[in-house]
Structures are given as structure tokens and as C-alpha cells.
């Protein structure tokens, strides 16, 4: 039901972009904007991979690590959640060179955004793990599983389903945060738009198209997450008692 609605919205958005592009006023900007969109998507995808990786590590470390590791993980989470993503980007890109560490702008973008979303994600993962019923742990102990076996086979698969919707939110947040990378010289969608706007002053076509392209990317993310949720909730859905 939801998926059909979302797909219809995505189709409408793409159709609108196509219709607008029929107008030469708009078509002019499309190649440049699409080029920027490719970079936006690249940063989103790599950032998402890093975010999921960091979130998983940080959540497990915070829950089950020895004390120093728990401290380390909490410090990471609080620093990256508690400061602005823009400042994190600036810090990695403009401050680190002062200490002799020069990172490529693209790498900085993926690192900063991935670490930032990963810090939020760590709490999502932790919450999902904690919300798995205590009886599931007890049954695993009664079957003499090791802690690692319990987590891998019993707890994480159930937590996974619970964390998909909040991850959907975070990924959309990530898509939108990528616009910040325009401020560290990367030619993403927002950067291209500003550049074109400044040189042509065609504000309406430029920012209308940008808006629609961001919406299309976000809707695609939402649909993908919905499909994933549907696939993994097998057996976990309520109300199917024979």
C-alpha cells in the first residue's frame, strides 16, 4: 500500500522533471545539475556504508565492551551527535591541514557525514538491540550459545527489522546533509545550483529543479527501505496466528 503510494509520488516527481526539461529555460541547467546529483548520490552511498559500519561497532562497543571501550564509544557518539555536521566538515577540511594532515575534499565529505550519521545510528542500533525481548536472550542461554552466537543469530536479526524505519530517516537526513559539502569546494547538486544561479540569475528554474531532484533521491531511499522492511519482517509480523 505504502510502497505503491511512494512509487506513484516518485513517478510524478520524475515526470515533472521531464516535463519541465521540455522547456529550454529549464533544459539548459539539467546536464550540470545531474552531474552534481551524481556526486551527491556517491557521497550519500559511501557515507551510508560508513554510517552503518560505525553505528554497529559503536553500539556493540557501548553495550558489551570493557569499560575503556565503552568510554571511547560514548565519546565518539556524543562528539559527533553534539556538534554540527558543518563544523565537523570544516574542522576536517580546514583545521587538520594546520596540523599537517591534508585530506581530499571527497574523503572529508564521506568521513564527516558518515561519522555524523553513524553517531545517531549507534543509538538506533543500541535501542533496537535492547528492545529485543529478554526471553530471547534466556532461550539462547538455555541452548548454551556463546554471547557472539546469540548476537549474530538471534538478537541482531530481530533488532535489524526494528531498526530499518529509523535508519530510513537517517539516510534521508544524510541525503540532505550532503548539501553542506558544497561549502568545502565539492561540486555537488547544491554547489552546481548556486553556481548556475549566480551566473544566470535564473533562480526559479534552477532551484525548482534542484528541489525536485533532491525529492526524487529521497523518495528512492524511502522506497528501498520499505522494500527491505517488508522482506525482513517475515515471521515477525503480528496477527497471523493460525
Amino acid at each position: 500500500m505504502w510502497i505503491r503510494m511512494l512509487t506513484a509520488m516518485l513517478a510524478a516527481t520524475l515526470l515533472l522533471i521531464a516535463l519541465l526539461s521540455a522547456n529550454p529555460e529549464y533544459r539548459l541547467f539539467m546536464p550540470g545539475l545531474l552531474e552534481g546529483a551524481v556526486l551527491t548520490v556517491e557521497i550519500t552511498l559511501l557515507g551510508a556504508v560508513l554510517a552503518v559500519f560505525m553505528a554497529l561497532i559503536a553500539a556493540l562497543a557501548k553495550l558489551y565492551g570493557p569499560l575503556p571501550i565503552r568510554w571511547l564509544s560514548t565519546t565518539y557518539i556524543e562528539i559527533f551527535r553534539g556538534t554540527s555536521a558543518l563544523v565537523q566538515l570544516f574542522w576536517l577540511y580546514f583545521v587538520l591541514p594546520q596540523f599537517g594532515i591534508f585530506l581530499d575534499a571527497f574523503l572529508v565529505a564521506v568521513l564527516a557525514l558518515g561519522l555524523n550519521i553513524g553517531a545517531y545510528g549507534a543509538e538506533v542500533v543500541r535501542g533496537a538491540i535492547v528492545s529485543v525481548a529478554r526471553g530471547q536472550w534466556e532461550a539462547s542461554i538455555a541452548l548454551n550459545m556463546s554471547k557472539a552466537q546469540m548476537l549474530r543469530r538471534i538478537i541482531l536479526p530481530q533488532a535489524f527489522t526494528a531498526m530499518i524505519p529509523p535508519w530510513g530517516n537517517l539516510f534521508i537526513e544524510l541525503v540532505k546533509s550532503t548539501s553542506l559539502v558544497s561549502l568545502i569546494t565539492l561540486a555537488d547538486l547544491t554547489f552546481k545550483a548556486q553556481q548556475m544561479n549566480q551566473s544566470t540569475l535564473k533562480t526559479v528554474p534552477v532551484f525548482t529543479l534542484v528541489l525536485l531532484i533532491y525529492l526524487a533521491i529521497s523518495l528512492t531511499v524511502t522506497i528501498a527501505m520499505r522494500l527491505l522492511e517488508q522482506r525482513t519482517s517475515r515471521g515477525l509480523t503480528r496477527g497471523r496466528v493460525a
Binding site: A133, G135, A142, N144, Q158
Partner: peptide, 29 residues
């Protein structure tokens, strides 16, 4: 390993079939 337990609230693994529940620990453990 010598002890098994059955609980008041069953505590079956909801993401596995009846068969899956019964072979999980014999395989992994």
C-alpha cells in the same frame, strides 16, 4: 550443555520456522 529449559512464555525465535528453531543450536553450538 547438560541442561535444557522450557519457559512459561515459550521464547521461540520468531524469525525462524519450527524446524529452524530446532536446528539452530545443534548447528551453531
Amino acid at each position: 550443555a547438560k541442561i535444557g529449559m522450557v519457559f512459561q512464555s515459550f521464547n521461540l525465535f520468531p524469525h525462524m520456522t519450527a524446524m529452524g528453531n530446532c536446528i539452530e543450536a545443534p548447528i551453531t553450538v
